Amino acid sequence: MAEPDLADLDAFAAVARERSFRGAARLRGVSASALSEAVRRLEEGAGVRLLNRTTRSVTPTEAGQQLLERLAPALREVAAALDAVNGFRDGGGLIGTLRLNVPGIVSRVVLPPIAARFMLRHPGVMLDVVAEDSFVDVLAQGYDAGIRYDESIAQDMIAVPIGPRQQCYALAAAPAYLAAHGEPRHPRELLAHRCIRHRFINGHTLPWELERAGEVVRIRPDGPLLTNGAEMQMEAATQGLGIIFSFGEVLAPHLASGALRPVLREWWQSFPGPCLYYPSRRLMPAPLRAFVDLLREPESRWAGALT
């Protein structure tokens, strides 16, 4: 029998535990075909079938079950050993790379103070962050974890709150715009106003949704600017070109300075804050584990400005 590859053994164990190539592939962030090829190599090397496959199920054979029972604790020991070796260097400092995929708003107003505290604590870790608003399969794309809002997170993911627990969408306009065009008193009046709209990279635009006392109004306003550029939207708003609809945290400095004034304040809709999500604690990379530990500390330890 040829010397088995550790990765193939791990692939077999994942499929045998999940009783599914697709289920194991989803948890591991690889394709089902890649796992099937790994199991095929292992079976050919061993000269014995390890998994019974039908169109409806995958179950270990007697040989496969015996291998799984003896393999599982060994793989846990290997994972722990690699985590210790790869995660720490001389003096106990954590090393490695933590790759995150996050929405643009999180990269601008939620993640920076948390990331700064993490990097100060773990200077040997490189934080690799990609900001994009479309939902992606983070594991298939090579990320350790993602950050999204609750409605975008699959139920089989582990989710850890990050940043504010409540956020809101807010409306604002420059005093000059309101002086020239008047101030809307109801969300439907926005249809008669010049509005600055956001378009996602994939071309989608979302309706503006506002709520007061249980009444929800969704509209698709028109206006002079449609862009995915947050800076361009803000510049247009502060120059008096229209009404902007954005995260409250984004508008807050401009509202505080007087460059913008709140519009339809009583209709601003709140929603739960974002979560860091990842598929499993098994074989969790040391940098990700440290980042999760940081998030689970009391809020005063990581939120807000560094002190």
Results as ranks from 00 to 15, higher is better:
Ala84Ser: 15
Asp133Met: 13
Thr97Val: 15
Arg76Glu: 15
Asp150Arg: 13
Leu98Asn: 01
Val102Gly: 10
His122Tyr: 14
Gly93Arg: 12
Gly91Met: 06
Arg89Thr: 13
Gly142Lys: 05
Pro113Cys: 08
Ala159Asn: 03
Val78Ala: 12
Ile147Cys: 04
Phe88Ser: 15
Ala116Met: 10
His122Asn: 09
Asn101Gln: 06
Met157Trp: 06
Pro113Ser: 09
Val85Thr: 13
Arg165Ala: 13
Val160Lys: 02
Leu75Gly: 08
Val78Leu: 10
Asn86His: 15
Phe135Ala: 07
Val106Arg: 02
Ile162Asp: 01
Leu98Asp: 00
Met157Gly: 04
Ile114Val: 15
Gly104Val: 10
Leu100Pro: 04
Leu75Met: 08
Val136Lys: 09
Glu151Asp: 13
Val106His: 02
Ile158Asn: 03
Asp137Cys: 01
Gly87Met: 11
Val85Asp: 13
Glu77Arg: 15
Ile105Lys: 03
Leu127Arg: 02
Arg108Val: 06
Thr97Asn: 04
Arg117Asp: 10
Leu82Ile: 12
Phe135Glu: 05
Val109Cys: 09
Ala80Cys: 05
Leu98Ala: 01
Asn101Lys: 09
Ile158Trp: 03
Ala79Gly: 12
Ala145Ser: 03
Ser152Asp: 14
Asp133His: 13
Val125Gln: 00
Leu94His: 05
Arg108Asp: 12
Gly146Ser: 13
Gln166Leu: 13
Ser134Thr: 15
Tyr149Cys: 06
Arg108Asn: 09
Pro164Asn: 05
Ala81Lys: 14
Pro123His: 10
Leu94Phe: 07
Glu132Trp: 04
Ala115Asp: 06
Thr97Asp: 11
Ile114Gly: 00
Leu139Val: 05
Pro113Lys: 02
Val138Gly: 03
Gly92Ser: 05
Leu75His: 06
Ala116Gln: 11
Val78Gly: 05
Gly92Ile: 02
Leu82Thr: 12
Gly87Phe: 08
Gly142His: 00
Ile95Phe: 06
Asn101Phe: 09
Ala79Arg: 14
Ala145Glu: 01
Leu75Ser: 04
Asp137Ile: 03
Glu77Gly: 08
Ser134Cys: 09
Ala84Gln: 15
Val102Ile: 14
Val78Met: 05
Ala81Pro: 07
Pro164Asp: 12
Ala81His: 14
Gly146Asp: 08
Ala79Pro: 06
Arg99Pro: 00
Asp137Ala: 13
Arg76Lys: 13
Asn86Arg: 15
Arg108Ser: 11
Arg108Gly: 01
Pro161Val: 09
Val106Ser: 03
Gly96Gln: 07
Glu77Phe: 11
Ala79Cys: 04
Val110Glu: 08
Pro112Asp: 10
Ile147Thr: 02
Pro161Gly: 08
Asp144Asn: 00
Leu94Ala: 11
Ile147Met: 01
Gly96His: 06
Arg89Gly: 13
Leu127Met: 04
